[in-house]
Nucleic acid binder design. Structure first.
Lengths: 178, 178
DNA sequence: CCACCTTATGCAACTAGTTGCAAAAGGTGG
DNA sequence: CCACCTTTTGCAACTAGTTGCATAAGGTGG
């Protein structure tokens, strides 16, 4: 139950239409909570029905017409509540690790190429994050909001670093296999 | 579509009943692909219907009766195919990072305690993995299967290490916040 | 001036995972 | 000897996320 809260956060940062939200979910927020436009439109409808957000009254809400939303006080209150509430971390679920485990039983034929491909993907993602860090968090930018957002980006960078290192290690092991 | 393959892997490692599988999914395989017993029973039914596994014919399959399954050649072939097939890594989706981002907008009240709790949980998990590493992978145990399984465990250890370090860093930042 | 492309919105059906509950079989203690 | 507990299996309903497609408005080039 996090998508509505992701949307509330995004709308508080800046009121937006469905499509604008979709764009912003393709980067930024989407780096740790991805969503398709269908999910977003559906959720916007629900949030409006529940009275947590409302359409900005600027233009008539016809089809093919931009419709922007803003967060209402109830919405902000709900986000505040949710943010502070304890939540258990969800157990890991990773396909590549499962495949590696399977390959111990049915053989490693073919998986190495995909390990290599994943390494490239994670290296690219890491480079992108580091670019963002350089651009958005130069030394001195350290208001409370900046520090918190930087912390989130750091998690992304460290995670991608972990994956690139682990994948390199895995490929080295493969090279040594009989 | 990974649960059936997780089950095939587990059954190849050792033919089991639904309940035994459930137990094994609570550790080992479950560390990177968790599943509830309901999921497992449903999937066993499907896999049997598709002819990828079959019930061991030992005892009559009455209710409240153990029923063990083994993998058929078609099942092994399917697992081999799936393991070698390229698959994209799924985008990250992490609630804590989302909450941190939200807290930049609605305030950090309350979240610090949960960061501390998560740190403890991840420290505990890390200790458990390291225990397993010491027990199951002493120096010298390095057949191909051992190496592959060790690699998977290493990913778990490194991931938990990442989380503990990041959470400690986050808590330090919080201590400095106005 | 209209066929077609892009932008923006949205419905419907499907897949995967979770939650809650129940029922059959066998053992156990009062 | 039977009421109750544990083990093992499973159904049903619900929630979240994905995929495929539809539709309306407005601009664009031949």
């Amino acid at each position: 139950m996090s998508l509505p809260h992701a949307i509330l956060t995004a709308l508080l940062e800046k009121p937006s239409s469905g499509l604008e939200l979709t764009r912003r979910f393709d980067k930024s927020i989407g780096y740790f909570w991805s969503a398709t436009h269908q999910q977003i439109y559906r959720e916007l409808g629900k949030l409006e029905a529940e009275g947590l957000i409302r359409a900005l009254p600027a233009q008539q809400p016809a089809r093919g017409q931009k419709k922007s939303y803003e967060v209402l006080p109830t919405g902000r209150a709900e986000l505040t509540r949710w943010t502070a509430a304890a939540q258990d971390p969800k157990p890991l679920r990773d396909v590549m690790l499962l495949r590696l485990r399977a390959s111990a039983v049915v053989g490693t034929e073919g998986i190495e190429a995909d390990l290599r491909r994943h390494l490239e993907l994670h290296e690219r993602q890491l480079a992108e994050y580091e670019e963002i860090e350089k651009r958005d968090f130069p030394p001195g930018k350290d208001s409370t909001e900046d520090r918190l957002r930087h912390l989130v980006l750091r998690a992304g960078i460290d995670l991608e670093t972990f994956w690139t290192q682990w994948l390199r290690h895995a490929l080295e092991e493969f090279a040594e296999l009989p």
